[in-house]
């Protein structure tokens, strides 16, 4: 499976009437996860988050593709 770069966010049991809502729900939760943390703590949270999500995705070829794109923009 190739890396999905189309909008793909959704939440089971929640009905969205506007296309922008699921992405905005996610982004707000992401920023809230970092609220009141130091920069060092935030870096650790991000690392843990990537590890958790990587395991959830599972497919290493997808992860390699994502890692390559992420590195290109650094």
């Amino acid at each position: 499976m190739a890396l999905n770069t189309q909008p793909n966010l959704h939440e089971p049991g929640k009905r969205h009437f506007r296309a922008f809502s699921p992405g905005d729900d996610f982004y707000e939760a992401l920023i809230a996860t970092h609220r009141d943390l130091t920069d060092e703590q935030s870096a650790m949270v991000n690392a843990r988050l990537i590890l958790l999500l990587a395991n959830h995705i599972g497919d290493i070829s997808v992860l390699r593709e994502a890692m390559q794109i992420a590195r290109e923009g650094a």
């Binding site: 770069t5 909008p7 982004y27 920023i31 923009g73």
Partner: peptide, 27 residues
């Protein structure tokens, strides 16, 4: 409002040119 929030914001903007999912996040 914070350094990490700005990093995420700029990452979204950086990905938006190429990737539709990131465009949906630009607010």
């Amino acid at each position: 409002k914070s350094a990490v929030s700005k990093t995420f914001r700029n990452a979204v903007l950086g990905l938006a040119e190429q990737f539709p999912f990131a465009r949906a996040l630009v607010n």
